[in-house]
Design a protein around this nucleic acid. Structure first.
Lengths: 149, 149
DNA sequence: ATGAGTGCAAAGTATTTGCACGTAC
DNA sequence: GTACGTGCAAATACTTTGCACTCAT
C-alpha cells in the first residue's frame, strides 16, 4: 500500500528539481519528521515536537514554508478546520477518505465512501466545475462521548 | 419558504430568554444587518460594512460574540474555511446545501444533494456517531476561470 | 561564487478578553 | 439597583515576512 519514506523523499526531490528548487536538508528532514509524527497533526504541535528533538531540527518558518510545498506535492492535506486551527494529514499512499470529528474529545474517525466521491463528481460535471480537492467534515459526538452524556 | 426577519428576531428573542440572556439592541440589530448583507460573508468584511452604516452600529467584539450565539441558535453557519478566514452563511429558512468554491475568483456555488446527505447518515450510524453538523467544500475552478486558463 | 533557503525576530491577520461604562431587567 | 452586555484597546494565537547568514548548485 503505502510507499516508504525513502521513496517519498526521492519523489519529493524530483518534484523540487522540476520546480528548480533546491533539495535541502530541512525539506527532506521534515518528511522524516512528519512520517514519525502522528498521522493527523496541527502545525504548532508539530513545531513544538520538532523543537524537542535533538537531531533534525527545522524552524517554525521553514515548517510553514515546507508544508505548503508538501501540500502542493500531494504528501499532506488540510483535512480539518476547527477553532481556527488547521489539522493536516499525511496522505501518501493512502486512498482518499473523509472524517468524522468529535467536538467533545477531538477524536478523528476516517471513512471511505466511493458513492459520495462519485456523487461529487456528478455535481461538478453539472456545474462545469473542475475540482482540485475537497473536504468533508462531519462534526458531532463519537460513541463514547455520546454515551457519557 | 424563508421566514421574515421580524419572525426571526422573535424566535431569537425566545432563544435568548430561554438561556436567561438579555435581549439587547445590538443582538437584534445584527440580525437585521446580516439579513441586509450578502448571504455569504466574512466577519471582517461584515464588521467594516457595519461601521459605514449610520444607524444600527455594532462593534467588532459584539459582532464576534453575537455570531456565536446566532450559530448556536441556527441562523448562521460556518460554511467555508479558506485562507484562515471563516465564511458564514445566513441559513434561516433555507434547506441544507453544500458548496463549490472557486479558488481563482472566489465564487461560491451552492448545491443540494439528498443522496450525499443520506450516505452521510448511513456512515454515522455505522460508527455510532451522532452528527451535529457537517461541511462539504469542493475546491476547484469554476467554468469561467477554467475557460480563461 | 551566487542566489535560493533558513532561522530569527518583527509584523500581519483574525479572534478573544479585561475592564469601565451603559442598559435590560 | 444590579448584573449582564457593550465598546474600546490590549492581548492572544496563528501565520507570514524582512533580513542577514548559510548552503546547494
Amino acid at each position: 500500500m503505502g510507499i516508504s519514506t525513502e521513496e517519498l523523499k526521492r519523489e519529493f526531490t524530483k518534484f523540487l528539481k522540476k520546480k528548480n528548487m533546491r533539495v535541502t536538508k530541512s525539506r527532506l528532514n521534515l518528511i522524516d519528521l512528519i512520517a514519525d509524527y502522528n498521522k493527523h497533526f496541527e502545525i504548532e504541535e508539530l513545531v513544538n515536537w520538532i523543537s524537542t528533538k535533538s537531531d533534525k531540527k527545522v524552524s517554525r518558518s521553514t515548517v510553514y514554508r515546507t508544508l505548503k510545498l508538501l501540500e502542493e506535492f500531494g504528501a499532506i492535506k488540510e483535512v480539518i478546520k476547527k477553532n481556527n486551527k488547521t489539522i493536516y494529514e499525511f496522505v501518501v499512499g493512502r486512498s482518499h477518505h473523509d472524517h468524522l470529528v468529535c467536538t467533545e474529545c477531538g477524536k478523528i474517525i476516517e471513512f471511505v465512501n466511493e458513492d459520495i466521491e462519485s456523487l461529487q463528481n456528478e455535481i461538478c460535471k453539472r456545474y462545469n466545475f473542475k475540482p482540485t480537492h475537497h473536504r468533508l467534515e462531519i462534526f458531532g459526538l463519537c460513541s463514547e462521548c455520546n454515551r457519557s452524556r
